[in-house]
Design a protein around this nucleic acid. Sequence first.
DNA 1: TAAAAAAGTTAGACTAATCTAACAATTATA
DNA 2: TATAATTGTTAGATTAGTCTAACTTTTTTA
Lengths: 230, 230
Amino acid sequence: MNPNKISFYLRGMLSLTEENYLKAIFHLSPAGNHVSLNELSKALGIKMSTVTAMMKKLSQKGLLEYATYKPVNLTEQGRIEAALVIRRHRLTEMFLVEVMEFSWDQVHEIAEQMEHIRSSVFFDKMDTILGHPSTDPHGSPIPDKDGKIKKRKEKMLSECKEGDEVKISSVRQGSDEFLRFLSQRKLHLGLALTVKKIEPFDGSMRISIPGRRQEFLSRDVCEKLMVAFS
Amino acid sequence: MNPNKISFYLRGMLSLTEENYLKAIFHLSPAGNHVSLNELSKALGIKMSTVTAMMKKLSQKGLLEYATYKPVNLTEQGRIEAALVIRRHRLTEMFLVEVMEFSWDQVHEIAEQMEHIRSSVFFDKMDTILGHPSTDPHGSPIPDKDGKIKKRKEKMLSECKEGDEVKISSVRQGSDEFLRFLSQRKLHLGLALTVKKIEPFDGSMRISIPGRRQEFLSRDVCEKLMVAFS
DNA sequence: TAAAAAAGTTAGACTAATCTAACAATTATA
DNA sequence: TATAATTGTTAGATTAGTCTAACTTTTTTA
C-alpha cells in the first residue's frame, strides 16, 4: 500500500469521502433527525445511486442507521465522527482568521481541505494557540474533543418579536455573497440590535443598532441571521 | 463529479498521487539526473508495476521523459511542478516551527499532508507571515513561486560537523580508483547520510546511512566527497 | 383513489491507483 | 561469456468512489 495513504486510514478508519458524507448528514440535521438520501445527494452534488451505496457502507460500519427506502440518521458514533470533522473545520477557520488574518469569507475553502488532516497534535496546537475558542468566526460552536457540542439557545432573527433585544450569534448558509453583504452593512457577529417593527405583509424588519440610524432587513436576511438574547 | 474533488484537480491538473511521484523523483535527483524506476519504487514503497504505469501517465502529460527499460528524468515542466510541491512542503514546515512552535521533528508528517492543499492564497499568506524565508527549518532551500531553486553551496564532507544531515552532491577529483571505491561502498550521488562522529585525531568520520550499518570514512575520502544539506 | 411525480434501488460500467504473477530485458558476476 | 541477479514490463485482478440507465417504491396531486 502507498505509505502516503496509510496515514489517511489510521484514525477511525474513515476516508476523506466518508468524513464528508457524515459531515453533510450532520449539517442537514444538527438536531439528529432523519435525513433523506435525496437531500444528501443534492447537498453533496452526488448522484443518488452513489449515495445509496455509501449509506450501506456507513451503516455497515455502525456510523448510521439505514434501511431501504427510509431516510437515515447518524448513530452516536456517527455523530461523534461528524462532530470531530466539524471541530477540525471550525478550529481551522478560527485559526485562519485569528492567526493568519484571513477575512472570514476566504476561510471556508481552505478549512474544507484542512479538516481532513490526520494529526491530532496539529489541531490540539491550534486549539491551544486560540485559547480553546468556543465558536468559529461565524459564531458556530466548536465541538469539543469528544465530539460534544454545547447547545446554544439561538433562533432565527425572523422568529423574534417586536421589542426583542438580541445579539447576532451566527450565520446560517454563509455563502460568500451573503457574507459580503453582511460585511458591507456592518452586520458582524456579536452586534447588538433591537427589533423595532415587523412588517406583517412581507416579514421584513426595522431594527435599531446603538449609534446608528434604524435599518431594514428583508425576511430573507432575517432567516439567515441567528441571534441569541444578550 | 464530487465537488470536493473538483478543487483537487484545478491547478495543474495533478492528483495528490501524481504530485507525490514528481516530488519523489525530484528528491532522488535534485540535480536533474535520471532516476531508475527501482529507486523510485523503493522510495515510494510502491510496486514497480505500478510505478511503470504511472511513468507512462506522467510522460503522457509531459512531466517526464520515459522510454521502456530506461530510467526517467523530469522535464522542465515536471521539475517546476515538483518544486512547487516542495515549496509548499517547506513553507509549511517553516510555518509550523516558527508560528505554531512545533519542534522540527514533528512537522514532516503534517507538511506531507498540507503540501497538497489547493489554495495559493494560503501559501502566499504563510510566505508573507514568515517574511519570505529562503530555507525551511532543516536548512533546505524553499523554491520560489516559479519553481526556481537557489543553488545551494555545497561543501566538503570533511567540513561538516557532527549531526549534519547531508546528501552527496558531487565528487572532487574523480580518479577511476576513487570512483571504483565509491561504487564498491555504494556511495552514490544523492545518497543521504548523517555525520555521527568525527574522530579528532585523524579526521575520520562515522556516518549513518538509512537502512545500513554505520560506516567509517577516512579524512581522505571526506575531503573528496562534496555534500549539500538536503 | 388512480395517475403522475419524486425518491430510492439495482445492475453494470468507468477511472485512478494499487496489487500479484508471469515474463522479458539489462546488468553483474563467476 | 554463460549464468545468475536485478530491473523493468505486461496482463489481469482489486478497491473506492463515481456514473448512467432501467426499474421499484413511496408520496403527491388531480
